[in-house]
């Protein structure tokens, strides 16, 4: 983990966690009680942060995450929110969302008041804000390995369908050992790994079971 001092030298901001490495461990107070990263082992986890409770963009996002929660659960994915607010603030805000917008927030939310988890995951972007977490999304696999990250600035709400799409792509990769092309969605053809020898490239060009665009670009249906 890379660390460097903030501009005033009084704070230490850690670098981002790295893809393919174990997700930083944590134990944190949440709206569903004390939870640890290890509690989620065996299922996929989407850990996401928002800047602050009772703010407009975050409210629309919480409605969005709540709406995709059951679809994600069916895919073996649990959601876990986080912001630098108290658990009482989280409880009040989620109750307010249910009362005013008719949406029950079904997932736990970390009350990271001491910023411990936020710092471990590099959720604070000092150039944007020193007191709020940016809109980060971490895709953590059943072995607690960090598989994908998305970062949005404070001003831009996230796209829920893209979050589902990334889950689908990661799970397809694990299940079928393939890669997925740009804008891929389930049901569409996937990328077959490129040959790494001249003779395999020659063979690939003759492979009628694949859609071979070029020796290094081939697709197949799942």
């Amino acid at each position: 983990m890379v660390e460097h001092n903030g501009a005033n030298g009084s704070e230490t901001f850690r670098g981002l966690p790295r893809l393919g490495e174990p997700a930083p461990d944590f134990e944190a107070i949440t709206t569903h009680g004390m939870l640890r990263l290890s509690d989620f082992k065996g299922s996929w986890l989407i850990l996401f942060s928002h800047p602050a409770d009772f703010t407009p963009v975050c409210t629309t996002e919480f409605v969005g995450f709540s709406e995709i929660n059951s679809e994600l659960n069916k895919k073996g994915v649990q959601l876990l929110g986080l912001s630098i607010d108290s658990v009482y603030s989280h409880i009040a805000w989620t109750r307010n969302i249910e009362e005013k917008l008719g949406v029950k927030v079904p997932f736990p939310v970390i009350a990271d008041i001491n910023r411990e988890v936020a710092m471990k995951y590099g959720m604070i972007m000092p150039g944007e804000s020193r007191t709020e977490t940016s809109r980060c999304v971490f895709f953590i696999d059943p072995e607690s390995k960090l598989r994908a990250m998305i970062y949005y600035p404070l001003t831009t709400g996230r796209n829920m369908q893209e979050i589902i799409r990334v889950v689908d792509a990661l799970q397809a990769t694990d299940k079928f050992q393939v890669a997925t092309p740009a804008n891929w969605k389930p049901g569409e053809k996937v990328i077959v790994g490129a040959p790494n020898t001249s003779s395999m490239a020659e063979q690939r060009m003759k492979d009628k079971s694949l859609e071979v665009v070029e020796w290094y670009l081939s697709k197949k249906a799942l």
């Binding site: 009680g33 004390m34 290890s38 509690d39 989620f40 299922s43």
Partner: peptide, 12 residues
């Protein structure tokens, strides 16, 4: 009940 909640509750 989701496994993560079962684990957390069992710990308590």
């Amino acid at each position: 009940i989701p496994l993560y909640l079962v684990r957390a509750t069992a710990r308590d």
